[in-house]
């Protein structure tokens, strides 16, 4: 029981064992293998080196490799766990695992906190939120006056920054999110529940003889 004989041959460097990745994440072995099909598509779109670079990530997100976007940069930065400027398969699976509908809520809250804590200070600062708001306005061509932006920030910090020190701590973030559950919508990707049907070709490329589902 629990034995898997792997025929792990001809795999890209960085393609971690699907059984080990499934054990570490909420994905089954089949789902990890289906994700490898997606990973192969994205990682070979510009340079076929078995790694996703920023250009490839942007191309997959926007169908445009040159589109600069602060939020996509933040997500890429967090997926690039080893800080090498590229995302390998293991990091891709571990990061996407947080977005699975069954992933722990705490993991989703922590990922979102890091996303917004742009300077990695352990706090979400007002200036960071302002910078993100302005980036969103530019992206969406929405126009809001400075006055309105400041009032949105005032209102947000009034609710979230309960100790009134001008920044949002992890505890304050968790409290704020629990009162505003819609903020966690972006942290769940329903697609991940059906990943094996989206990429059925994983069956033909499976490196694992016995599939644990």
């Amino acid at each position: 029981m629990g034995c898997f004989s792997s025929k792990l041959t001809n795999q890209s460097p960085g393609h971690e064992n699907p059984v080990a990745l499934a054990a570490e994440t909420v994905f089954s072995v089949s789902e990890v293998e289906a994700l490898y099909e997606l990973f192969k598509n994205i990682s070979s779109s510009v340079i076929d080196d078995g790694l996703i670079n920023k250009e490839e990530f942007q191309l997959a997100l926007f169908k445009n490799s040159q589109k600069e976007n602060l939020f996509a940069d933040r997500v890429f930065y967090l997926f690039d766990v080893k800080r090498r400027g590229v995302i390998d398969f293991g990091d891709f699976v571990r990061s996407l695992s947080v977005f699975h509908p069954n992933a722990p809520r705490e993991d989703k809250m922590e990922f979102a906190f890091k996303l917004y804590d742009m300077d990695s200070t352990g706090y979400i600062e007002r200036e960071e939120v302002k910078q993100m708001l302005i980036a969103l306005l530019c992206e969406s061509e929405m126009k809001l006056s400075d006055e309105v932006i400041e009032s949105i920030l005032d209102k947000t910090f009034e609710e979230a920054d309960t100790d009134r020190d001008g920044r949002i701590s992890r505890d304050e973030w968790q409290n704020f999110v629990s009162h505003n559950p819609s903020l966690m919508k972006i942290m769940t990707l329903p697609y991940l529940r059906d990943i094996t049907t989206t990429f059925p070709s994983f069956v033909f490329n499976s490196a694992v003889d016995d599939i644990a589902t």
Binding site: F62, M142, L144, N180, S182
Partner: peptide
């Protein structure tokens, strides 16, 4: 938008819509 909190607005960004990764 003025009635929304900043994070609700930010989460509308296309850059945070990772569902696009799954589009073939």
């Amino acid at each position: 938008p003025a009635a929304m909190n900043a994070f609700e607005l930010i989460s509308m960004s296309q850059g945070l819509n990772l569902g696009n990764l799954f589009e073939k």
